[in-house]
């Protein structure tokens, strides 16, 4: 996939109503329950036009529900949202004309070729047969699928299917793009290729909301990251801000007794009860580690041994979402 400056999503195609500095996505108080279980709790989200926002969170955090509500595929129990300047409840058709959605599972027909898929999508998006053909050729070229254009999608690799799916979602030149876990299940190389595509989309001025379970992915692609946990926003900011909010290292303490473990468990971001081990965030400096040990264990009886570890992205994630508690 070359990084030519061609217009991938084509924000100029439909004549945007939102000007510079406006919001591509603006959600207020979105709430949704399924069978008494609250999956989304008064979610607020503001994504400036032309930026990439990542919704980061574990399974069940409400990421997919958020995307489905904003893409008008399901309705919120309460709350409102505007997507590309249109109200998702009152102007559903206008929203749908402005958006595209790539779901967790590539919605690609095994028994159609790449070319047929894109031409069909073009026709469904309202293009004439000739326009659909031209747009299909253009997208196949851009997504490195020209050679495979005439082959059935069932012969495609996982990465090729995702690319075809993403290409299909771009046929109608959306101004707002929803990518629901676009790289889940992809090998590292295919993931890199998809990241490149998303970067190009941003370059074209499209607003992108992507969901992911990987902080690294959010770090690579997003201008701003919203961390979701159990339907609520756990943290928000740039990837750098989020990383600085949690300390860069973790002090793993092996405690001397169950009592000491219980007493200190609330301070920890990492818990291994069977080994009486707790992990506490630290910046890793000698001064901080010394102060931390003194603070946690003033009598010098609670802590048996310790190890200092560099925090992984997973630690950051767990610290922000509380998934470990």
């Amino acid at each position: 996939m070359a990084t030519s400056p061609g217009n991938l999503a084509g924000t100029t195609g439909r004549g945007g109503v939102e000007g510079l500095g406006s919001l591509g996505i603006h959600a207020t108080g979105l709430t949704k329950s399924y069978g008494g279980q609250r999956v989304l709790d008064a979610l607020h989200l503001a994504v400036p036009s032309g930026s990439v926002c990542a919704l980061l969170g574990p399974n069940g955090a409400g990421k997919t529900t958020t995307v489905r509500i904003l893409a008008t595929l399901t309705t919120a129990d309460s709350g409102t949202a505007r997507v590309a300047g249109h109200d998702i409840a009152a102007e559903r058709t206008r929203v749908r004309r402005a958006i595209a959605l790539t779901g967790q599972f590539a919605a690609v027909d095994d028994l159609q070729t790449g070319l047929e898929t894109l031409r069909m999508t073009g026709r469904l998006a309202g293009l004439t047969a000739a326009e659909a053909r031209a747009r299909a050729d253009e997208l196949l070229e851009r997504f490195g699928l020209t050679e495979a254009a005439g082959k059935l999608a069932r012969t495609y690799s996982g990465g090729m299917r995702r690319r075809l799916d993403l290409a299909a979602s771009l046929v109608g030149r959306p101004r707002v793009l929803f990518l629901d876990e676009p790289t889940t299940g992809l090998d590292p190389r295919s993931r890199q290729e998809l990241w490149q595509v998303v970067r190009e989309l941003r370059g074209d001025g499209a607003t992108v909301l992507l969901t992911t379970q990987y902080l690294e992915e959010a770090d690579q692609l997003a201008d701003r990251v919203t961390v979701l946990d159990s339907g609520r926003i756990a943290a928000e900011g740039t990837a750098a801000e989020l990383k600085s909010r949690v300390a860069g290292h973790r002090l793993d303490l092996v405690l001397t007794s169950r009592g000491a473990y219980e007493a200190l468990a609330g301070r920890a971001v990492h818990h291994v009860p069977d080994e009486l081990t707790l992990g506490v965030p630290t910046d890793g400096s000698a001064a901080h580690v010394r102060a931390l040990l003194d603070e946690l264990d003033p009598d010098r009886t609670a802590v048996d041994r310790f190890t200092l570890r560099t925090a992984t992205l997973d630690d950051v994630f767990l610290a922000l979402t509380g998934a470990d508690r």
Partner: peptide, 13 residues
């Protein structure tokens, strides 16, 4: 079940 209907609905079909 396989996401096709979501794609179609997001195309306003």
């Amino acid at each position: 079940t396989d996401g096709v209907v979501d794609r179609l609905r997001s195309l306003d079909v």
